[in-house]
């Protein structure tokens, strides 16, 4: 019943699956004219999403301990290790100790109960280790996201497909924007996130600190 590391194994597809999918999103153009400056601005918005607690709290490192951003207690708003001594293990799904899915069931139904563990249409899990975002600078995260070796083998189109596929299965990205039960959503919407991704891709995936290129990198023109 478990789909291990679904996100990690999803590969970019040549055929645009989303065209037939039920993701409800408007697919932006990847070949629009986007200046590097506008691309970097799009990246900034992407970075804001990635490092929002709804996203980064499961993009942790080798320690494999997910994070909580508290809404109550001694210091509301502080980031702390997930309660209950939770450890994701090398499996990143807690299989060595207690499965994420023991509490975070797999379901596409809305999250409505305050304090209850959130769920999504994918099996709950930590992001793969190579997707670690905690403790990284924006430039480091950016370099990860545009590197197929460290982003699940995705090119620009693959990144777009990653989002639309997530929308089809009510996955983690979708959940991040609609976490329900009083949780603060990631900034923007899934559509704006998709648009920003597309703009960033169209601009040639510029990262902070990149030497300003004379022309767009090749990834975007595939």
């Amino acid at each position: 019943m478990r789909i291990l590391l679904a996100a990690a194994t999803a590969m970019a597809c040549a055929a645009p699956l989303w065209a037939e999918g039920d993701h409800g999103l408007t697919i932006p153009s990847l070949t629009a004219e986007v200046t590097p400056e506008a691309g970097l601005e799009a990246w900034d918005r992407l970075h804001e999403v990635f490092t929002h607690p709804r996203c980064i709290n499961c993009h942790v490192g080798e320690e494999a301990v997910p994070l909580w951003t508290t809404t109550h207690g001694a210091n509301p708003g502080e980031t702390r290790p997930h309660g209950m001594n939770i450890h994701g293990g090398d499996s990143r799904v807690g299989a060595e100790y207690i499965d994420c899915g023991t509490c975070h069931v797999t379901s596409t139904r809305p999250n409505t109960t305050p304090g209850a563990p959130p769920h999504a249409g994918l099996d709950w899990q930590l992001a793969p280790l190579e997707f670690q975002w905690t403790g990284k600078t924006p430039a480091e995260i950016c370099a990860q996201v545009r590197d197929p070796e460290r982003n699940g083998g995705r090119d620009g189109a693959g990144l777009i497909e990653h989002i639309t596929h997530d929308a089809e299965v009510a996955g983690f990205i979708t959940w991040g924007f609609t976490p329900g039960a009083g949780r603060e959503p990631a900034p923007g919407s899934l559509q704006s996130h998709l648009d920003d991704t597309a703009a960033w891709v169209a601009a040639g995936m510029p990262c902070p600190g990149d030497p300003l290129p004379a022309s767009a990198p090749t990834e975007a023109s595939e």
């Binding site: 019943m1 499965d99 023991t102 069931v105 109960t113 209850a116």
Partner: peptide, 30 residues
């Protein structure tokens, strides 16, 4: 009712699951 206590734990296809979190409609033939 919010998977804080675990008193409702059952096994679904052998895996421990908090039954207070599991909608019956998502269980299928497990």
């Amino acid at each position: 009712g919010i998977a804080q206590c675990g008193a409702c734990t059952v096994h679904i296809d052998g895996q421990a699951v908090r039954s207070c979190q599991m909608p019956v409609g998502d269980i299928g033939n497990a």
